[in-house]
C-alpha cells in the first residue's frame, strides 16, 4: 500500500475513545449492556469490578475478532463471536479459580453477565468485524470506559442513598439517622436503577441538545 501510515493516535483514532464516553455512549445512546448495568449497580464496588472486567474482555475480544474478521463466514459469525467471548471468559475464570481463588469468588457472579453483555457482542458486530485490530482495540477500550462511567455513576447514587455507604464505608453520619433519616430502600431495588439511568440520560441530553430524539 502506498498510503501513508496513520499515526497511532490520530484525530480519528482519538475519537474512537472519546465518542463512547459521551455522544455515542453505549448505555445512554446505543442502549447496550443494560441488564448487567441493572444487576451490579446496587453497590459501588461491584460496579467497579464489572467495569474492569468489561474493559479487559471487550478490548481483547475486539482485537481477536478483528484479526479473524476476513476468515469468518458471515452465516455463522454470531456463533463464532460468542464462542470467542465465552471461551475467553471461561478460561480466565478457570485460571483465577486455580491461582487466586479469592478473586475468583468475587468475580464468579460476573462470568455469566459478561458473556451475555450485549455491549461486547454489539461492538464485535458493529465495529471489530469491519475494522483493523488497532482501531478495534481503541474502540473496545473506549466503549468499555463509556459503559463504566455510567455504571459507576449509578452505583454511586444507589449505594449512597440506598445504604448510606460508599465502597462499604459509612458515609451518612449516625447523627442523621438519630434525627429520623432513613435509607431509601427503593434505591437498592432494580427498578430504581432504570430510573437513575433515565435521569442520567435527561441530564446528559439537556447539556448536549444534539442528542435529543424527535419523540
Amino acid at each position: 500500500m502506498s498510503k501513508e501510515r496513520e499515526p497511532l493516535f490520530s484525530a480519528k483514532n482519538r475519537k474512537l475513545i472519546t465518542n463512547p464516553l459521551h455522544v455515542d455512549n453505549p448505555i445512554t445512546v446505543q442502549v447496550l449492556g443494560i441488564c448487567s448495568a441493572l444487576a451490579v449497580t446496587a453497590k459501588l464496588k461491584p460496579s467497579f469490578v464489572m467495569m474492569l472486567s468489561v474493559i479487559a474482555v471487550l478490548t481483547l475480544a475486539n482485537v481477536i475478532i478483528s484479526i479473524l474478521r476476513n476468515g469468518i463466514p458471515p452465516r455463522i459469525r454470531i456463533i463464532v463471536m460468542l464462542t470467542v467471548i465465552a471461551s475467553l471468559v471461561i478460561l480466565v475464570d478457570q485460571v483465577l479459580k486455580a491461582f487466586v481463588y479469592d478473586v475468583s469468588k468475587q468475580l464468579s457472579v460476573f462470568v455469566g453477565l459478561i458473556i451475555t453483555n450485549c455491549i461486547i457482542m454489539g461492538r464485535l458486530e458493529a465495529f471489530a468485524s469491519a475494522n483493523k485490530p488497532w482501531p478495534s482495540l481503541l474502540d473496545g477500550f473506549g466503549n468499555a470506559l463509556g459503559y463504566g462511567w455510567v455504571l459507576i455513576a449509578v452505583g454511586f447514587t444507589r449505594e449512597l442513598f440506598g445504604s448510606g455507604t460508599l465502597w462499604d464505608y459509612q458515609i451518612i453520619p449516625q447523627a442523621f439517622y438519630d434525627i429520623g433519616y432513613q435509607n431509601n430502600g427503593f434505591m437498592i431495588l432494580p427498578p430504581m436503577a432504570l430510573i437513575v439511568v433515565g435521569i442520567i440520560i435527561w441530564i446528559q441530553r439537556a447539556r448536549s441538545p444534539q442528542l435529543i430524539e424527535e419523540n
Binding site: T28, V29, V31, L189, P190, P191, M192, A193, L194, I195, V197, G198, I199, I201, W202, I203, Q204, R205, A206, P209, L211, I212, E213, E214, N215
Partner: peptide, 23 residues
Amino acid sequence: VPGPLRGLGITFIITGLMGIAFM
C-alpha cells in the same frame, strides 16, 4: 415530555415504574 427525556429517557423511567408495579 421534556425534550431531553424524549425517547430513551422516558422509556427507562416508564420501565422502572412498570417494574415496581410488577413487584
